[in-house]
């Protein structure tokens, strides 16, 4: 597949995630949209790693493997982030009895 298609697919997924973060006010759905954006970036990294493999495989047999290792580490960080973030959402629900992010404007007053 030409790399163009993967770039446009990942850009579309990323922009849907951005629009979701901007439009929705439910904190859990905002979190899910962030996961969507991370996955779009992961897909693009894997596509680029295979592109480099295709271009350079004649000289070095493991060209492009760094991209896939990087995707692995992004998944690790995303898992850690989700566990802490969901704990924060649970605590926020306990304090305000809502997960609407518009209620979180106490620092304004």
């Amino acid at each position: 597949m030409p790399i163009n298609y993967y770039i446009f697919l990942a850009v579309a997924l990323f922009c849907i995630g951005v629009a979701g973060v901007l439009t929705r006010r439910n904190a859990i759905i905002i979190f899910m949209c962030i996961e969507l954006m991370l996955n779009a970036v992961n897909l693009l990294l894997v596509a680029f790693s295979k592109m480099h493999y295709k271009a350079l495989a004649a000289n070095q047999p493991d060209a492009g493997i760094n991209g896939q290792i990087f995707v692995f580490f992004i998944m690790v960080v995303a898992a850690a982030e989700v566990s802490v973030g969901l704990a924060i959402i649970v605590m926020m629900y306990r304090n305000t009895h809502s997960i609407d992010v518009n209620f979180l404007n106490r620092l304004k007053h």
Partner: peptide
């Protein structure tokens, strides 16, 4: 805002010289 971001990305990448780059499936 999301659509504008998509438009910017597509406009920037539409004419990029990537046609010859193949992601090997």
């Amino acid at each position: 805002a999301g659509g504008a971001l998509l438009l910017v990305f597509v406009g920037a990448l539409k004419n990029a010289d990537l046609k010859s780059q193949i992601a090997e499936v």
